[in-house]
Design a protein around this nucleic acid. Structure first.
Length: 902
RNA sequence: GCCGAAGUGGCGGAACUGGCAGACGCGCUGGAUUCAAAAUCCAGUGUCCCCAAAGGACGUGUGGGUUCGAGUCCCUCCUUCGGCACCA
């Protein structure tokens, strides 16, 4: 007795698809193609624990879209691969001695087997792994493009897409060299170029994690100052690092986000991360030390200040302030008259020169203490503000008032100019600090509301105590003061971003080596000059190594590579040593969507014609955890490639959807420690891949977070069984068509249901509303289960509609219904809108907005006809008896409402 | 603190541009089939009033508002989840 047997059906059809290369997609569109469609999943990191149920959620969604569009005649690209560099394999190597390569490729085999088991219609001939030499060769090549590019901020241009832009990445050979630099010779020119490249080296304080033996990006450090991986302590340390100048692209990454078909909340997440703010820079002259504090000192200082202002008025505002000037950034230049003190970040270079002898010890102690803390540590201890007076004073440029200069770690060196003017009356942090240290507070903005005190008011209001500007609304004040400051050479309008440059190097083995040589002198010491590895020497392959133990120093594992890998002598006789850092895991995932288009190309990373045909990605689905970093990084790389003419679109991903996380049955995040992990292998073993796919789509809206339910899986499994029994003969010994399925015409009712189901399922797939599409197919099945005979044409329709969701069962039913081969390319059913219209519909009748009856009316009935039909209904008659009808609202095709009184 | 998303039966969820709240599934109850069970099929299932039916009242986090009519629009507050977090 052939019950619904997913195991038999699924292995049979997976073998069929493999054997017939059903889903292999050539780069040339087939004859009659209705256009291309590139549907992409976020490729997984092949972890040792295998696929979890979160993966198939997004993968099933894209597979439905792909299978549906394939039937609609679209030329679909649907690839899969592996983001396979990364720390876990290396950690595993440290523990067990197994080479990361071996671990990684074993894990990939597991993932591939699991994905094939789920019946996704990937074109497996396009499979890639970021760890393949043939792949990371091009990752290195793209890095060299970044290295070869500088950002020309003011360059105005029109791209191949017809969009006008300001700011462009251009070849380093086109960088103008200032004459004074050129005069100093080749080495100086090279250093100048290096300082402008999108990939540059920097001695930067980084997050060094001794336990992992590596530095981490800010994003890889948790708010408690622990590593995201492993939860180990992280400390600060200055190291030479490779950085990518993503900040150059901040404005483009922001403005070019707007036209994309992404959810507004994801766009907002990216915008917040970029964090654009508009304000002004203002310069403050530092008083000469020792003078202030003496009763007689005032006039001399005023003379200094007056002279400086004169000089500025003549010379104008310059890119770099004099050595006795503090430059601040503020979003509220309108509160300049309310500044009562200034704060420098402890690391600010001016601290050393302005601090008075009296205060030196205290200032040094404070700097020492804060140097040990990371940005994150500082915010952690945010309960009370701390800081130290430097003993020095600055002069407020608008009114000549002296302002004590403090250092405090609530001011960050990494944002703005690393210095602020403090306006305690209108800034919460400054107010807290002023209260703590008893500094004066001057109100300069009126809230305009007696209930809201001016002190502590941080909104827009009206200026008070602000000289000639008094009475101006905040917005107008901001404009006027910016103009006034600029004309006096004391400041200018300015924009800041909270986005920081991307720390791009890691001290790991299992990552892409940098294609970079360091020049070294006779003693083996680096000269500070570097060279790119020649393009035809790529890839720089990972040397074979077997010792992965961290050495407890920031020296990367590759520093212990064989000498013939590490050293070389150039044609010009220069001794060269390889860069021994490696790239972060993000690198490979920044451009994988391009390689899928042309994964076998050995001449270039992608053929331009192929790129033009497939790009951009039409639909990209993946987890919300990548809403910021991965998506921002790959947009950045893509824009550089675009500026350099290697790709034809400015943005890689036209439409983006984030699937919601699947929680455990107890409504908590799935984790081993909570013991609520669902293993896809188990679910498939018991209910089949079709049931798993269907359940994950039926749980709820794709983008929503939702808990797992085994009972729910059971439910859709039962549904699939009903579909099977509707078409196959459950009682027969062989697998044969049910005798109830006959070649008979549809009744009018059945015909309407068939066409309605085609319409709603089609519309729902287009909207990615898979849960409702499934419920419509359930309704259909509930109706036809009771039919005898069951028209064969209706069975064919439901089979085709179900195919994107439960492809194995659908293929089997299709065969039972007498068709040869796969239905994967069979045309999607169409419906006739005229057949959806019913002659008579049931509408609600309300009295005073309350439902009192339901009546049947002809579909075409107008308002008057509906009203008279409603009035003749017995219940409504009774409701209306003895009352006055004030008004009747009758909406054709919808409802009737009597408004009565009495 | 700021930004974003969301609160609907016992549970997951549905409801187009304001127009029958609870589609579909789970769970539960009853029945058929069976020696019995599993599986399957049929029926019922928001809460309350009423012996029951007929009928009625209430009902989409809270409180208010707009409207003939509000889950849907506006304002207030509460809760949960996600992101950022001294960014001047």
């Amino acid at each position: 007795m052939p019950r619904y047997d997913p195991r038999r059906i699924e292995t049979k059809w997976q073998a069929f698809w493999d054997e017939h290369a059903t889903f292999v997609t050539p780069n040339q569109p087939p004859r009659g193609s209705r256009g291309k469609l590139y549907v992409l999943d976020m490729f997984p990191y092949p972890s040792g624990s295998g696929l979890h149920v979160g993966h198939p959620e997004g993968y099933t969604a894209t597979d439905i879209v792909v299978r549906y569009n394939r039937m609609k005649g679209k030329h679909v690209l649907h690839p899969m691969g592996w983001d396979a560099f990364g720390l876990p394999a290396e950690q595993h190597a440290i523990k067990t001695g197994t080479h990361p390569r071996e671990t990684t490729y074993n894990n990939i085999d597991t993932f591939r087997r699991q994905l094939k088991m789920l019946g996704f219609s990937y074109d497996w001939s396009r499979e890639i792994s970021t760890t393949d030499e043939d792949y990371y060769r091009w990752t290195q090549w793209i890095f060299l493009q970044l290295y070869d590019t500088w950002f020309d901020t003011d360059h105005e241009w029109t791209g191949p897409d017809g969009v006008k832009r300001k700011g462009k990445g251009r070849p380093i050979s086109e960088l103008p060299i200032p004459s004074d630099v050129a005069a100093q010779g080749t080495a100086a020119v090279r250093r100048y170029q290096d300082s402008q490249r999108l990939a540059y080296q920097s001695e930067a304080p980084v997050n060094w994690c001794p336990a992992l033996g590596t530095v981490l990006a800010n994003e890889e450090v948790s708010s408690e100052g622990k590593s995201e991986i492993g939860g180990h302590p992280v400390e600060r340390r200055a190291l030479r690092q490779w950085m990518l100048r993503i900040t150059a692209y901040a404005e483009r990454l922001l403005s070019e986000l707007d036209p994309l078909d992404w959810s507004e909340s994801i766009k907002i997440l990216q915008r917040n991360w970029i964090g654009k703010s508009i304000g002004a820079e203002v310069d403050f002259l530092v008083e000469e030390s020792g003078v202030r504090g003496q009763e007689s000192g005032g006039s001399g200082q005023r003379a200094n200040f007056a002279a400086w202002k004169d000089a500025r008025a003549n010379a104008g505002y310059s890119a770099a302030p004099e050595s006795n000037v503090i430059r601040v950034y503020t979003t509220r230049p309108d509160t300049l008259f309310g500044a009562t003190y200034m704060v420098l970040a402890p690391e600010h270079p001016l601290v050393a020169t302005i601090t008075t002898a009296d205060q030196r010890a205290a200032v040094e102690a404070y700097r020492q203490k804060s140097s040990l803390k990371s940005d994150l540590d500082r915010t952690d201890l945010a309960k009370e503000k701390t800081g130290v007076f430097t003993g020095a004073y600055a002069v407020n440029p608008v009114n000549g008032q002296p302002l004590p200069i403090w250092i405090a770690d609530y001011v960050l060196i990494s944002y703005g100019t690393g210095a602020i003017m403090a306006v305690p009356a209108h800034d919460a942090r400054d107010l807290e600090f002023a209260t703590q240290f008893n500094l004066p507070v001057i109100e300069v903005v009126s809230s305009g509301n007696d209930a809201v005190p001016n002190i502590g008011f941080t909104g827009d209001g009206t200026a008070i105590n602000s000289g000639e500007f008094t009475g101006l609304p905040t917005a107008e004040f901001k404009q006027k003061i910016a103009v006034a400051l600029a004309s006096q050479g004391l400041g200018k309008s300015a924009v800041n971003y909270r986005l920081r440059d991307w720390l791009f190097s890691r001290q790991r083995y299992w990552g892409e080596p940098f294609p970079i040589w360091h020049e070294i002198d006779a003693d083996g010491k680096p000269t500070g000059l570097v060279r790119a590895v020649a393009e035809n020497d790529l890839p720089v392959t990972l040397p074979d190594m077997d010792d992965f133990q961290p050495k407890g120093t920031p020296e990367p594992p590759l520093a212990a590579a064989p000498r013939d890998w590490l050293y070389m002598t150039a044609d010009d006789g220069t001794r060269l040593k390889r860069e021994t850092n490696s790239m972060p895991q993000w690198a490979g995932s920044c451009w994988y969507y391009l390689r899928f288009c042309d994964n076998k190309n050995s001449q270039s990373f992608i053929d331009p014609a192929v790129e033009k045909y497939w790009m951009p990605v039409d639909l990209y689905i993946g987890g919300a955890e990548h809403a910021v970093l991965h998506l921002l990084y790959s947009r950045f790389w893509h824009k550089v490639l675009f500026d350099r003419g290697h790709v034809s679109t400015a943005e890689p991903f036209q439409k983006l959807v984030n699937q919601g996380m699947i929680l455990g049955e107890n409504n908590e995040k799935m984790s081993k420690s909570r013991g609520n992990v669902i293993n896809p292998d188990d679910v498939v073993g018991e209910y089949g891949a079709d049931a798993l796919r269907l359940y994950e789509m039926f749980m709820g809206p794709l983008e929503q977070v939702k808990p797992w339910s085994m009972n729910g899986v059971e439910g859709v499994y039962r549904f699939l069984g009903r579909v099977w029994r509707m078409i196959a003969d459950d009682a027969a010994d062989d697998i044969v068509l049910s005798p109830t399925v006959q070649d008979v015409p549809l009744t009018t009712e059945q015909e309407r249901l068939v066409h309605k189901t085609i319409k709603v399922v089609t519309d729902d797939i287009e909207k990615l509303s898979f849960n409702t599409a499934i419920s419509r197919m359930m309704e259909f099945t509930n109706e036809f289960t009771g039919a005898n005979p069951r028209p064969k044409s209706a069975m064919e329709t439901i089979t085709l509609l179900l195919a994107p969701f439960a492809p194995h069962l659908a293929e089997e039913c299709w065969q039972l219904l007498g068709h040869n081969g796969s239905l994967a390319h069979h045309p999607w059913p169409t419906y006739d809108a005229a057949l959806l219209v019913e002659d008579e519909i049931e509408i609600p009748v309300q009295v005073n907005g309350k439902l009192r009856a339901k009546i049947k009316v002809p579909t075409a009935a107008d308002a008057a006809a509906m009203q008279s039909l409603a009035e003749s209904d017995e219940t409504i008659k009774a409701q209306l008896a003895g009352k006055t009808i004030v008004k009747v609202v009758a909406v054709p095709g919808r409802m009737v409402n009597f408004v009565v009184k009495g």
